[in-house]
Design a protein around this nucleic acid. Structure first.
Lengths: 223, 223
DNA sequence: GTCTATAAGAGGATAGAC
DNA sequence: GTCTATCCTCTTATAGAC
């Protein structure tokens, strides 16, 4: 039995190295420019061996996304262990975490346009399950923040959710970092601030404010 | 002479059809998934003929970006013809315009990751010139809005500029539209509102507010 | 300048030995 | 499960006739 466990452990390590390589390549080059040859080279094994672990390039991408979704969920759970902390601060902390991951070059981002990949992911059970779990947890925070009006209650909750996901790969961070004029932490502070407060100063407030949008964020499943 | 002018006109029409095809394909599939074969098919000419007009796939992308930059600049100039209108409203109107273009499936977006393409564009004189012209005009609005505090003066102006560019291809619009739950105009209103006012309600205000950042937006040239 | 045909090469995936 | 070698399709770009 110890033998089996050992083999399993080696297997885990191998696959973890592969997923790490995919993660880094997705973060830097993106899905379309990432080649399976590169993944194999970086993970230190032959391409044919890699295909014994993951049956396609899409599977590789899905594995990397599953891992980052799990890590995000861990972060959410850790923040939920501090129930005295205001919900809006937890949302802020999650955005901050995603930006730090992105700044470290470890946020895998998928092209929202590649329909082949999108379809594959929609049919990927493990990926979809993690996505729903995380979305539900964040959706809970969002509706609580909206009911106490620390988040704008006029926005549909799924829009807030989409925006949080989108900011995790916002190109603004990369552009500011490439400018080389500002400290990393300063950049993150600004991005968090604009996510929740916008570019303006509040002088504009009282724009369109339609019905309170009571629907749950679980509508994501329908997509 | 009339003959030459006619030939020129035919040429212009041909190339305009090509650029329109590129524009639409960049908006839907993105650069990496767009193939030159598709462009040729959609524009209604043979691929080899297309290469007589544009010498590479990168040139095609640059041409589409040049056109959208010129159109954006036209919008800015049109808004500048109404000097009584507050600067912040003009910025809002430009964001609204970019979202409408995106909603119509006509906003060409380039992957911010493809370094080959990025390098080609940086070395593309016509593209860079248009980018600088538009950036300067927007930069003017931005600093004016900041000095009258309708835009947050604590943000570096180039961050505001980057954010405007980024929102023009924000995936949130596509996600909301795919949901099918909201009217197009409603979606745009929400996106404009969150761009300038954020997701929050202002209860968070008074975050980090460092030095006023007096540098001009012209620093973009340095990239 | 337009076409058909093709070169040249990248990249996803597999065969088959060990 | 790991490797080397190979298949095969797709894609950018060009040759060369008209």
């Amino acid at each position: 039995m110890a033998n089996v466990s050992y083999r399993d452990q080696v297997l885990r390590l191998r696959e973890d190295a592969i997923v790490s390589a995919v993660n880094r390549l997705l973060a830097t080059k993106g899905y379309d420019l990432m080649t399976v040859d590169e993944v194999a080279a970086e993970a230190g094994l032959a391409k044919a061996s890699l295909y014994k672990h993951f049956t396609s390039k899409e599977e590789l991408a899905a594995a990397a996304m599953v891992r980052v979704l799990e890590r995000a969920t861990e972060q959410v759970d850790a923040l939920d262990a501090q129930p005295q902390r205001p919900v809006i601060e937890r949302l802020e902390a999650i955005v901050r975490w995603t930006l730090e991951v992105q700044l470290a070059g470890e946020m895998p981002s998928l092209p929202s346009q590649n329909s082949r990949l999108t379809d594959a992911l929609r049919g990927h059970a493990a990926y979809m399950e993690r996505l729903v779990v995380l979305s539900d947890k964040l959706g809970d925070w969002i509706s609580r923040a909206q009911s106490e009006s620390t988040l704008n209650p006029a926005l549909p909750p799924e829009m807030v959710l989409f925006t949080l996901f989108a900011r995790a790969c916002d190109p603004v961070l990369g552009l500011l970092k490439a400018g080389g004029q500002h400290a990393d932490q300063q950049i993150i502070d600004w991005l968090v601030a604009t996510t929740f407060d916008g570019l303006g100063t509040g002088a504009r407030r009282a724009v369109a404010a339609p019905k309170p949008a009571a629907r749950s964020v679980k509508a994501v499943r329908a997509r």
